[in-house]
């Protein structure tokens, strides 16, 4: 019981840091996945006096991945009821070219503005429709979501660090006595600190394995996967290699820093 209590305080603090960190990664991945989805559905319409290739558009602004000419048939169909076929052919020749421009990624409002001005600066392009209003609303919503999650994670991080520093004082008090006694019998620093580092590393491993378990379970939990499917994206909730290494690394690093601070703050008893 005593031993469990010794470990619990640091393990809980580490868990809250690891959980908020992994949640932040999940949200970031979701937003990236959603941006890819949006970029696939989002395009800019450009009207040009002359024919332009995809390469020509890419040279105007590198964000353009592909330009697809929109067939003028639907426009002509609306106008053609009272026209002769020769006039229709003439109309086809005089009509400007409409292009649907696909983009490499979902652009920010600034990127949209620059794209529009770059396109309009070209001699052949006369009009650009960027659907800025709809785009801005979705983009700002994503940004708001990301900021809220970042803020939440930061608050959790700060509160947890404060808890850890409080715990540090208790550890310092508890371990100082033992370290001083060991020092009075001639124990070298590494031997005096060994218990502390062992405790810190064990706590880091416990917190890491609990995190692995929880996120591995969540990554295959149908309800979680359904939430992502509902908005048409697929997100890796827990990558067994990359995320495990990251969680383990952060957890061990925090614990070792904590133990080192205690060792450095240790005052020899006179």
């Amino acid at each position: 019981m005593k031993s469990v209590r010794n470990h619990l305080s640091l393990v809980v603090a580490l868990l809250s840091i690891l959980f908020s960190m992994q949640l932040f990664f999940i949200v970031e991945r979701s937003i990236d996945a959603y941006k890819v989805k949006l970029s696939q559905n989002y395009s800019v319409i450009a009207v040009s006096k002359e024919e332009l290739s995809s390469d020509a558009f890419s040279k105007i602004n590198k964000i353009i991945s592909q330009a697809q000419e929109i067939a003028p048939d639907s426009v002509i169909k609306k106008l053609s009821s009272d026209m002769k076929s020769t006039n229709i052919e003439l109309l086809k020749l005089t009509l400007p070219k409409f292009y649907k421009l696909s983009l490499k990624h979902y652009p920010s409002p600034d990127e949209i503005k620059k794209l529009k001005s770059d396109l309009l600066a070209h001699n052949a392009i006369t009009k650009v429709e960027d659907f800025a209003h709809t785009h801005d609303t979705i983009y700002k919503l994503l940004l708001l979501f990301k900021n809220v999650v970042t803020l939440f994670s930061s608050v959790v991080l700060v509160v947890t660090l404060l808890l850890i520093f409080k715990e540090l004082r208790i550890w310092q008090y508890k371990h100082n006595e033992r370290m001083s006694i060991m020092g009075l019998f001639g124990a070298a620093l590494w031997l005096r600190s060994a218990v502390l580092f062992r405790l810190a590393i064990v706590d880091a491993l416990i917190a890491s394995f609990v995190s692995f378990g929880v996120f591995a379970y969540l990554s295959s939990y149908p309800w979680v996967l359904e939430q992502f499917r509902n908005i048409g994206i697929e997100v890796v909730v827990f990558n067994p290699v990359d995320d495990s290494l990251m969680i383990l690394g952060v957890s061990v690093m925090i614990s070792i820093i904590l133990a080192s601070l205690i060792v450095l703050g240790h005052k020899e008893e006179a």
């Binding site: 060991m182 019998f185 001639g186």
Partner: peptide, 30 residues
């Protein structure tokens, strides 16, 4: 100093035993 203290045995007025260790572990320390 560590080396020197390894050849000393000290008895303190307030005992200075490690509270979270059993008495055997305390005696085993030096």
């Amino acid at each position: 100093l560590n080396f020197l203290r390894r050849h000393m045995g000290i008895v303190f007025q307030d005992y200075k035993l490690v509270k979270e260790w059993t008495i055997e572990k305390n005696i085993m320390l030096p």
